[in-house]
Design a protein around this nucleic acid. Structure first.
Lengths: 190, 190
DNA sequence: CTCGAAAGTCAACAACTGTTGGCAACGATA
DNA sequence: TATCGTTGCCAACAGTTGTTGACTTTCGAG
C-alpha cells in the first residue's frame, strides 16, 4: 500500500505533543522534564525518546507554530493598528504554543532564534507593505514586536495584575494606537 | 567595638555576588549552577553555601535592585515620556541585575513576584501622580511596563536585530510618545 | 492460527545538581 | 608562642535528569 496509513501509535504521539506543549508553556524548557511530560500523557518516558528522539527535538515539534497574520490588503489604513492588536491578542489567548516558545526563548538560544525568524518572516513582510519608508520597515516591525511581546510577557507570564485585568477589547484599544504609530506613523530620528 | 569592621571574607562575598549576577543574567536561574558561579569567582562551591545559605538566597541577594526613578516633580508634563524612556534605557544598559531578574522571572515565580512588587512600589506611585484619572493609575503603570519590559526583552534577551540596532537616542524617541500616552493620554474604553 | 513488526514496560546507566561535614591553612589576639 | 575563630578546600551524599537497551505484550497481515 502506497498511501500513508494511520499508525496505531498516532494517538500516543499526539498525546505526547499536547502534554509537552502544556509543560513547556507552564514551566519553561529546563523545568519541564521528560518524565513529567510522559506522566501527563500516561505513557513511559522511553516512548517520548522513541517517537521524538530527544528533548530538543520534542521541543522543536511542540513549539512549531504560525502567527497566521491576516492579509490586511483590504483593511483601511487607519484601522491597521486595531486589526493587528486584536489579532495578536486572539492568537495568544487561544494557543499555548506561543507561551511555550516565549518561556523557552528566554533561556534557550534555539528558541530565541525561532522567535526571531517568525518576526522576520511573518511580521517583516507586513511592515514592508505598510511602512511609508521601506528602509525602516525592519525597525518598525521590531518596534511592533517590543509592544506585543511585552504585553504577552506582562499578561501571561509575569501576570502583572493591572495587565491581567484588562479585557481583550480594552487591551486592543490601548495597544492599537501604538501599533499604528510604529507601523505607519512618522519616523523618529532620535 | 560597635562599628562593623570589614571582614577578611568581604572580597570573596563580593566576588561571588558579581559572578552570580553575571551567570544569572546570562543563563537564567536553573542553568546558572553554583559550581559555575564558584568557578567564575575562583573559589570552592561550598563557600557560596556558607556565605549565602542556598541558591534561592543567593539569587535574592544578586537580584536586589532599585529602578531609581527620578522625581519628575519639576518635569514639564509633555516631557515625561521622553524623560522616563531615557531613564529606563539608561538603567538597563548599565545594570546586569535587571537582566538577571527578568530572565529568572520567566520561570521562577519568586522572581516574577519581585518584578511585580517593583512595579507596584516604584512605577505605581509615578503613574498615580501623573494619571489624569486616579482610578486608572494602576492600569497605566501596567501599560508602561508592557512597553518597557517588552523593549528590554527584544533588545537584551531575544536580541531581535532591528531592536538591537537602535541607538539609545533613537529608541527613546520611538518609545517616548507611547509612554507619554499610556501615562497621560486619554483613557481607552475598549 | 502463525508470525513478525509495532507498541509499550521496566530497570538501569552516567552525568549533573544543590548541599553537607570534615579537615587544613591562616591570622589576629592574648 | 599558643589559641581560636575565620577562611578555604576536598570528598562525598542523595536526588534528579536525559537517555538507553532488553524485555514483554499487542495485533493485523499472510
Amino acid at each position: 500500500m502506497v498511501t500513508m496509513t494511520a499508525r496505531r501509535s498516532d494517538a500516543t504521539r499526539a498525546a505526547i505533543l499536547v502534554a509537552a506543549r502544556e509543560r513547556f508553556a507552564a514551566d519553561g524548557f529546563e523545568r519541564a522534564t521528560i518524565r513529567a511530560i510522559a506522566a501527563d500523557a500516561r505513557i513511559d518516558p522511553s516512548m517520548v525518546m522513541r517517537y521524538y528522539g530527544n528533548k530538543e527535538a520534542l521541543f522543536a515539534a511542540a513549539a512549531d507554530f504560525d502567527l497566521r497574520l491576516p492579509d490586511l490588503g483590504d483593511t483601511p489604513g487607519e484601522r491597521i493598528g486595531t486589526t493587528l492588536a486584536r489579532h495578536f491578542l486572539h492568537r495568544w489567548e487561544g494557543d499555548e504554543t506561543l507561551m511555550a516558545l516565549l518561556r523557552a526563548a528566554v533561556t534557550k538560544e534555539a528558541a530565541a532564534e525561532r522567535i526571531r525568524s517568525v518576526f522576520v518572516q511573518q511580521v517583516g513582510p507586513v511592515a514592508a507593505r505598510l511602512a511609508p519608508d521601506p528602509a525602516q520597515a525592519a525597525t518598525r516591525a521590531g518596534l511592533v514586536a517590543t509592544q506585543m511581546l511585552g504585553f504577552a510577557l506582562c499578561r501571561y507570564i509575569l501576570r502583572l495584575p493591572p495587565v491581567v485585568g484588562l479585557t481583550p477589547e480594552e487591551a486592543a484599544a490601548w495597544l492599537a494606537p501604538t501599533i499604528q504609530r510604529y507601523l505607519t506613523g512618522e519616523a523618529q530620528a532620535g
